[in-house]
Nucleic acid binder design. Structure first.
Length: 732
RNA sequence: GCCGCCGUAGCUCAGUUGGCAGAGCGACGCUUUCGUAAAGCGUAGGUCGUCAGUUCAAGUCUGACCGGCGGCUCCA
């Protein structure tokens, strides 16, 4: 007999080969019907495997995972991914199977398939899936030794699986498979007992993907889906998707006249319309005032700088492909730049240097006034590159600035610094330009021209902790001021195995340890992300959760020992000797574009009073009170509010409707009844009619709400798990 | 950049097997002068993303390009 210990301490006697499902059945039939999987020492396992195989512990510590358990959905969705793959295999014979993991609220499966799948095919696939579910066949697990597993997948013509076992799972001696009818898939599991447990599912979308995420690798088709135990829960979730879609900042941004991206201006280049600009200006004024209190000095720097500046900082070579091309004094300079790249053995993208092209190049060089006789017609690529580089250096090249730090470094260097001057805190809303890949652009969230609420702090090694602590405090303060209180911190560190970072491992260790220590002292819990650091230093990113539970990467604080080294920054210490300062890069909002885009979705366009682009709209009841309404608007404007006056020839009901739909926080109805005592009838977007009050009282009320930066109501959502988990699970 | 889908009036969309370009909202004009979520009537507005091709005939079919969306990859 086998002893099983339940979480409440109960010990049950079971047959030697009992499964979790048997245990559930011995307690009650309903429990057995609800049991999806089992949990032993916290790891989720199949409910239909003999328990004795799963652990050596006696009695076996068993927790039954039922449909109510959050872990159960992951198991269900993974099984549904198999069902989908099985349906696709039936409809598209010969399809290659890649990965089919679960996601936060669903799953996907990648297929190697020549025929494109479109949304029109979803009903067909879903119908086939339903047939599989109706058949309710069990998921049967079996295990094969390595060599047999590879042969097995080869026999099934599943090349990608063969490759994955050979490369990705090289350290596994035995591989597990799951069989469901005619369908067999390499899989770690666990799975639900049988397909009939899937009561609600939906194929959501199809998109391209790469085999193992490698852009040079094989292109696959990825089908996304979701699955639930309860149809109503799925429908509620689908409604939440719909809710998020309605909040889309691109839709709201257009409807509310906040921003526009014109194809005439260019992809990823954001135009701030007056109302969006009002929000941004309010945020900028708010943060500027705060920075002055905290000892920052505002600076300004130009939008371009010499390429050498970014060669020194390391940005130019490192991010070459995601920058706009350099600007040359003479257009022919571009050609030289092009040929330097094509001769570079690292850059195999470009075609080789042909004799014709060489002649064109020499012509261009002569145009630029260079001595071309020295160019070795039959020289090696290295020799040619060397001359090209010399030519390139002889002409002025500018870059649209991709970062503000090199400019701020130059401001630091503009005067000799003493230890008494430190820390030097230079702040600028700096606009930078990055040539993001076209497929990456997304409204205001991912753009090619963006303004960072940037600052660079130059301090002594001893001051680093204090400055970093204060910076974290600032980030928390600004997030709290806009009502974003739910966030986590991500500490991105260097991957010791990678060579993409500059600077010595010792400096990196120092920087990373300082960050860890301060984060711990500040009581901020954080997750460490090895390999996610910037090339010059580790960073702490604030991952902010909005009212729909979605996460956004906003503010960032980065510690940098490398740029001071590269730019040879110095200050004179108390010992009258030169010392090297440490730099802190920080941007509490990240970029104004991204931050405002995120706020639009967070508030669903209904900004709190202090941020609302139009705070108050004055509504004359008829033309008879237009003049009075105009005077009211004037007085509000004088009190510093953003006010408009609706002079349409329309009924007040229609004016109210317009203002409500445009999410204006307050409406002041001005009719003959109010005009005489110099009063207004106040209507609030949220609470409706507040009755008549004197204009002075109204202004007092508005001032209080504005200066307190009151957030009166968030358009709440009942659902709080849009992206609870971002990582992949059940990876094969 | 890659894969898939999409592009008709300012916005949201309809447009049969290829055969005269449509609606609602908005805008504008006139009437209405009104008390807390839509007053009535009328008018204007489109080289159907661009350029080629097939055809007697292209919004509709084909190709290239531009742009958008969903993903992948990337994100200093």
């Amino acid at each position: 007999m086998l002893q099983v210990k339940l979480p409440d301490g109960t010990i049950l006697e079971q047959l030697d080969n009992a499964t979790a499902l048997d245990v559930a059945g011995s307690i009650g039939e309903r429990l057995a019907r609800a049991t999806v999987a089992a949990s032993i020492h916290g790891s989720i396992v199949d409910a239909m495997r003999p328990l004795c195989e799963l652990t050596d512990d006696r009695p076996i510590p068993l927790k039954l995972v039922t449909e109510k358990d959050p872990d159960a959905l992951g198991v269900l969705r993974h099984s549904c991914a198999h069902v989908m793959a099985r349906a696709v295999m039936r409809l598209y014979p010969g399809v290659g199977l890649a990965f089919g993991p679960t996601l936060g609220t669903g799953f996907y499966y990648d297929f190697d398939l020549q025929t494109p799948i479109s949304e029109d095919d979803f009903p067909r696939i879903e119908a086939e899936m339903q047939k599989i579910i109706d058949a309710a066949e069990p998921f049967e697990r079996f295990s094969l030794p390595r060599a047999a597993a590879i042969q097995f997948c080869a026999d099934l013509n599943q090349e990608l699986k063969v490759e994955h076992i050979s490369a990705g799972l090289a350290d596994h001696e035995a591989l597990s498979f799951y069989r469901q009818g005619e369908f067999v898939d390499l899989c770690r599991g666990p799975h639900i007992p049988h397909a009939g447990r899937i009561r609600a599912f939906r194929i959501l979308s199809v998109a391209g993907a790469y085999w193992k995420g490698n852009a040079a690798g094989r292109r696959l088709q990825r089908l996304y889906g979701t699955a639930w135990f309860d149809r109503r829960e799925m429908n509620a979730w689908l409604e939440q998707i719909e809710e998020a879609r309605k909040r889309d900042h691109r839709v709201l941004g257009r409807r509310l006249g906040l921003f526009s991206i014109s194809t005439d201006v260019g992809q990823g280049l954001c135009l701030w319309l007056p109302k969006g600009a009002a929000i941004r200006a309010t945020l900028e004024e708010f943060i500027k005032a705060e920075l002055l209190k905290r000892g920052y000095q505002p600076v300004y720097s130009p939008h371009i700088g010499r390429v050498e500046l970014y060669e020194t900082s390391g940005h130019f070579p490192y991010y070459r492909d995601s920058q706009f091309s350099p600007i040359f004094g003479h257009p022919a300079g571009q050609l030289i730049d092009h040929w330097i790249r094509s001769l570079d053995p690292q850059d195999s993208q470009l075609p080789p240097f042909s004799p014709d092209a060489e002649q064109t190049l020499l012509q261009a060089a002569r145009l630029l006034g260079f001595e071309t006789d020295a160019f070795p017609a039959s020289g090696t690529a290295d020799q040619k590159t060397e001359i090209l580089r010399r030519w390139e250096k002889q002409q002025e090249r500018f870059l649209l600035k991709p970062m503000n730090c090199p400019h701020h470094v130059q401001i630091y260097k503009s005067v000799p610094r003493s230890y008494r001057d430190l820390p030097v805190r230079l702040a600028e809303f700096g606009t930078v330009y990055r040539h993001e890949q076209s497929g990456e652009l997304n409204g205001m969230l991912r753009v090619r021209g963006l303004t960072q609420d940037d600052a660079h702090l130059f301090c002594t090694a001893e001051q680093v902790e204090q400055e970093f602590t204060q910076t974290l405090d600032l980030v928390r303060f600004v997030l709290q001021s806009v009502g974003l209180e739910d966030y986590r911190v991500q500490l991105s560190t260097r991957d010791p195995a990678s060579d993409k970072y500059v600077g010595s491992p010792e400096l990196w260790e120092t920087a990373q340890n300082t960050l860890r220590r301060v984060l711990q002292e500040q009581g901020l819990s954080y997750v460490e992300m090895p390999g996610e650091a910037a090339f010059y230093g580790p960073k702490t990113d604030f991952m902010v959760r909005d009212c729909l539970g979605r996460e956004w990467q906003l503010g960032t604080v980065q510690l940098d020992y490398n740029l001071p080294e590269r730019f040879q920054l110095e200050y004179t210490g108390a010992d009258n000797k030169p010392h090297r300062p440490v730099m802190i890069h920080r941007a509490p909002f990240g970029s104004m574009e991204r931050f405002v885009g995120m706020l639009i979705e967070h508030f669903a366009g209904a900004f709190p009073f202090w941020l609302a682009p139009e705070q108050i709209r004055v509504l004359p009841l008829s033309e008879k009170t237009d003049a009075y309404a105009g005077r009211v608007a004037e007085q509000l404007r004088a009190a510093g509010f953003r006010v408009s006056c609706d002079l349409q020839s329309a009924r007040v009901q229609a004016k109210i409707r317009d203002a409500q739909l445009e999410l204006v926080p307050y409406m002041l109805v001005c009719g003959p009844k109010a005009a005489e005592p110099n009063s207004v009838s106040v209507r609030c977007r949220l609470d409706g009619d507040l009755g008549v009050m004197s204009l002075e009282d109204a202004i007092r009320r508005f001032t209080l709400e504005r200066d307190g930066r009151t957030i009166r109501q968030l358009p709440k959502s009942s659902f709080s798990g849009m992206q609870t988990e971002s990582g992949e699970h059940n990876a094969y």
